[in-house]
Amino acid sequence: MTAATIFQRPQSLTERITHYCPGCTHGVIHRLVAESLDELGLRESTVGIAPVGCAVLAYHYFACDFQEAPHGRAPALATGAKRARPDLTVFTYQGDGDLASIGTAELIHAANRGEKFTIIFVNNAIYGMTGGQMAPTTMPGQVTSTSPAGRDVDQVGYPLRVAELVATLRTPSYVERVSVHSPGHIIDAKRAIRQAFAYQKEGRCFSLVEVLSTCPTNWGLTPLASLKWVEENMLPYYPLGLKKSPEDEV
């Protein structure tokens, strides 16, 4: 019997050990992006844009060229890079503080112009890097270091549903929300991420995949309890599924 390789590290990932906390799902999402780049043969022509937040060091883990953006501005950098070199595959990898708070203008206008790059939007309902502050995506009543009595929607409004917001724009795009809290959901998330890059490869449209993610450290939960928390608290408010397709009627 000869040995056969049935599982290996994607070429688009480096061997470096990540700085992410135990149980954080950034690692899973990195892998799904890397597998998609590998399978579509895009790695050598890819430029990633890192955010400010937990994923700022993503460039140490992806084996492709990278730019590091000011906080929230990744879609503007991606616009510049893609307009300069339409032959490149350009993606941003942004958290919810970066994309849904300080970077809202850059997100909406890049989407509305139909910039042909891909956004991987990681929504874990909290600011991770700075130590667990309230984000625009924090759940009603959720306790964070800046909402110690729980998010009060009378004072700060309801969580921002980014995928739905972007899907209201008339410009054709691909927008889907997925989750990585179970193996089945991870497989589905992979399909969506790969689809986003496939649309970019065809020069088709702007694409955004919102991925529901965990933050065990700042949620104060074990990794397993965190996965359950996504299922029970986030899923009802952030419904999964396709929000907009370039096949839709304009």
């Binding site: 510049g80 300069a84 070199r85």
Partner: peptide, 26 residues
């Protein structure tokens, strides 16, 4: 050439960042 009216000066200058980093005069 590329002419693009940005949504703000904040965005315009960050577009320069992305374009310059991709090797073009901007």
């Amino acid at each position: 050439g590329v002419f693009l009216q940005a949504e703000s000066e904040v965005a315009a200058s960050n577009m320069l960042f992305g374009a310059a980093a991709a090797g073009v005069r901007t």
